[in-house]
């Protein structure tokens, strides 16, 4: 059974595209057939984050308008044979596509892919409505900042009103040192306000910046963020994976000590 997942946030700049790229790649690494759809028409950048920009010939609007077949517009990622991208159009705007057309498109893609991941634009207007139209479940990305939480709260309200079947939360860019000092909201604080299940917490990691710039998703790598994204992909597949220990810096000896302490 294939699943259509929209990745959304309301606020811009919290990491929707990065999350889409990494979670999508993660799901592909785990052996699923995945298609990523960039629904941010006019401001496309999922292709850049995936390093596939130079291979775009046709785009989402071309598919919807019937200028090409879906197959022609899909870009295969050479690194991950299971992963394909449907890029967005750069020279059009959000009104070029309707929710009805998106629903039809996702239905068609269901036949071929296990996971269809929609990278939603920021905002709650047409672009958002298009992106959520065909989705079975939503991943709401937020950072532990008041403004991002406000927007996430609004988005969750709108998703509930649209009767989205499943809504999960990703807390991105958390900094445990700041949480410990009481300068940043903790996962628990965020959960208390938003009252939806947290499917993953991703630490603030400078490797992400590097990976994004080079167009190489870091999911599955040794970095903490890469691990976190892979864990999210696993949880999407229904696996029970414990939350990462983000304290990170526990030394070798203290780990051994805690291992003995448990006995």
């Amino acid at each position: 059974m294939s699943e259509v997942i929209v990745i959304t946030s309301g606020k811009g700049g919290v990491g929707k595209t990065t999350t889409s790229a990494n979670v999508g790649t993660g799901l592909a690494q785990l052996g699923n057939k995945v298609v990523l759809i960039d629904t941010d028409i006019g401001l496309r950048n999922l292709d850049v984050v995936l390093g596939l920009e130079n291979r775009i010939v046709y785009n989402l609007v071309d598919v919807v308008e019937g200028n090409c077949r879906i197959k022609q517009a899909l870009i295969k990622d050479k690194r991950y044979p299971n992963l394909q991208l449907l890029p967005s159009a750069q020279t059009r705007d959000k009104t070029s596509v309707t929710p009805e057309q998106m629903r039809k498109l996702t239905e068609e893609l269901r036949e071929e892919f296990d996971y269809i991941i929609l990278d939603c634009p920021a905002g709650i207007e047409q672009g958002f409505k298009n992106a959520i139209a065909g989705a079975d479940r939503a991943l709401v990305v937020t950072t532990p900042e008041v403004s991002a939480i406000r927007d996430a709260d609004r988005i969750i309200g709108l998703l509930e009103a649209e009767e989205m079947k499943k809504i999960d939360l990703i807390v991105n860019r958390i900094r445990m040192d700041m949480v410990k000092r009481g300068d940043m909201m903790s996962m628990e604080d965020v959960q208390e306000i938003l009252a939806v299940p947290i499917i993953g917490v991703v630490p603030d990691d400078e490797n992400i910046v590097v990976a994004t710039n080079t167009g190489e998703p870091l999911v599955g790598s040794n970095s903490l963020a890469g691990q976190a994204f892979l864990n999210i992909s696993r949880r999407i597949m229904g696996e029970e994976v414990e939350l990462l220990n983000l304290e990170g810096k526990t030394g070798f000896f203290s780990r051994i000590a805690s291992w003995f302490a448990r006995k």
Partner: peptide, 13 residues
């Protein structure tokens, strides 16, 4: 007389 509402009232609602 009262009314009841169950659930979280979110931003914008």
């Amino acid at each position: 007389p009262g009314q009841f509402y169950r659930g979280t009232l979110r931003n914008g609602q």
